[in-house]
Structure formats: structure tokens, C-alpha cells
Write a protein that binds this DNA or RNA. Structure first.
Lengths: 162, 162
DNA sequence: GGAATTAAGGACATATCATATCCGAAAACC
DNA sequence: GGTTTTCGGATATGATATGTCCTTAATTCC
């Protein structure tokens, strides 16, 4: 049960987009080079963010991506689900129904007890991610990353945005 | 990010093993037929439980599996990790290290901020499963499953245990 | 208007992993 | 000694993640 690496990529890209000056866009190329990622494949992750309406896009030179909402209005779960999908981590195949001792037309009133517990854990995972906003990540990063590195990173990346 | 179906199988099998009379074993064959699962492949899941010391085995006729501990001393996380492994669902590839603006020998003191958040969510998932004991599942099942079906299931399964 | 740049998305190749089956060895029971 | 069982290795298959390539349409700049 491993998350796609695109989730990691999307989160880091959103962190960068969150620090962008008003109105500026960042291209796939710039984001890929900054993180050392394959441009074409990172593009798929960014398209997922776009389809989820988390980012906006513009074509042409100086085009690319920017956040569609304030960083405090975007949480980790939205980003994770955008690229990973909303499916639960546990899928119940209802194997209890195969029990040969069950009468012919027997119908369970509730979903499987095993599934309910696994889904509860899944929901705990989602709750945690839902509670963390993109703005929280930005705050943490600006505390931990040395100011000069942080600043030069945006200069570097904006230079590539034309 | 989907769990292996073997996790579901292992949980259901443990629920049955928990209801077994003292000293009795249940074979892979019996568990597979009860749940309608491929015998050879289910065997791998049960081997995982065995390696994790959650179940004990005996060879020969009337052999098979039984719990190695009381149902109240086994939790869902142990079972899930036995077949799924203990690896976290989020793996940090440290793509921040690729940032071309970082000085040559720069070394981060903490693990990546993104990873810390994702690992926190992972821990929430584990905490939930850790808190649910196998005995809790058995209680729920004996409440929800009609008594006669529950009883005949064990008769059916014990008949196959020789 | 034309050239360059960009996102979007389809087609395709590759690698990894889950799923599944088969077999032989060792142990326990009759 | 023959049967039944777990255990582990070997192998096959299918699905999915990863990665690349190409076309199309939109936008910007000259």
C-alpha cells in the first residue's frame, strides 16, 4: 500500500506555487528542473491538480500553473486525492457472503464488520490530511529553510518563468 | 494506494480462528473453502501470520492453524502489517535535495516537512488499527451474525478439521 | 501573420508488484 | 509406509505505476 510518487511531487509543487508572487505562473519545465523530475510525467500530476480545480493554467510563453485558491483554502487531502484518487485503501470483497452455511436469500443489513473497521482507519488517515492546510506547510518551510536559500529558489524559478 | 486482498483474507480467517474450541487447528483448505478463496494463495497469507507469530501451526492430518495468543492480545494492525509489511504508505524521495539553489554540502537537520505530515497521517491510520483488538471483532460479529448461522459455520468448519 | 512556447491528452513502452498456480521437502499422524 | 499438512521456491499472468513521445489547441511575442 504505497502512495504514488506523484503525490509527493504534487505537494512539493504546490508549496512552490504557494510562494509565487501574485499573478505569476510557473511552467511544468521550471517545476521539473527545480525538483529533478521527468518533465513529461510530472505534467500528468499537474494535470490532475488542474482537473481538481486546485490550480489554474495559462498557455503560451510565461504560461503555466498557479494556485486557484488561497494556500489556507487548500488542504493536503485535496492534493493527495487529486492525484491518487478518492478510493478507500481497503476494498471489501464481501467474502463472508461465500459462507456455505448462510441460507439462500440471506441479506446482511450492515456492511461487513471487518470493512467498517478498516474504513474507520482510512477515515482517520483522511482526517489528518484534511486538517493540514497548504499554508501550514508554507509556514513550516519558511521557518526551517534558511531564508537565503528560500529566496534564491524563487528567484531561480521565476527567472525560468520568463 | 490499495491494501492487498490478503489483508482482508487474514482478518476474516483470524476471526474464525478466534472462535475455535481450545486446542483445535484449522487447515488452509477449510479456511479457503469457507471463504471461497484460492487455497494455494491464501496459504501465503497464513504463512505471513505464522512468521509474525500471530498463529501456530501443526503438520499432518488434523493439523493447520490456531491463534498463538488470546484474541484480546491481537490487534488489527499486527494482522495488517503481517501480510502488508511495515513500510509506511508515503515514501520520501527527498526531492528537495535536488534544488539547484542549495549550497554544495548543505545538510537538512530534519526530515522533509512534507514527509513528516504524510507520516503523521500514516500513524493515525496505524493508531486506529492498533486500538481494535481481534476480540472486538468477535464481539461485533457474534452480535450481528444470527446465532444459528454462526454456530453452524463452526460445525461446518470443524467437520473439515477431522 | 508567423514563430515560439505552453497545457492537455492520447498512444505506447517498460518495470514493478499483486495475484495465482505448481511442485518438492519436511514434519506429523494413522 | 502412506496420507495429510505446512513451508518455501519457482514460475506465470495480469494490473498498475512509471516514463516517453507525439499531436492539438491556445497564447504570447516579434
Amino acid at each position: 500500500m504505497i502512495l504514488k510518487s506523484q503525490v509527493e511531487w504534487a505537494l512539493h509543487c504546490c508549496a512552490i506555487l504557494a510562494g509565487l508572487p501574485e499573478g505569476r505562473y510557473l511552467s511544468t519545465k521550471a517545476l521539473a528542473e527545480l525538483h529533478g523530475l521527468p518533465k513529461e510525467y510530472l505534467s500528468k500530476a499537474l494535470q490532475s491538480l488542474s482537473q481538481a480545480s486546485l490550480v489554474e493554467t495559462t498557455l503560451g510563453p510565461s504560461g503555466g500553473y498557479r494556485l486557484a485558491k488561497t494556500p489556507s483554502d487548500i488542504n493536503f487531502l485535496e492534493i493527495a486525492e487529486a492525484v491518487e484518487g478518492k478510493a478507500r485503501s481497503f476494498t471489501c470483497t464481501n467474502i463472508r457472503a461465500n459462507n456455505p452455511c448462510r441460507p439462500e436469500g440471506y441479506c446482511d443489513s450492515k456492511p461487513c464488520a471487518v470493512a467498517r473497521i478498516m474504513w474507520e482507519a482510512d477515515e482517520a488517515w483522511r482526517d489528518t490530511l484534511r486538517r493540514v492546510r497548504l499554508s501550514d506547510l508554507v509556514s513550516t518551510l519558511s521557518e526551517e529553510v534558511p531564508a537565503d536559500i528560500w529566496r534564491s529558489t524563487f528567484e531561480w524559478v521565476l527567472k525560468r518563468a520568463g
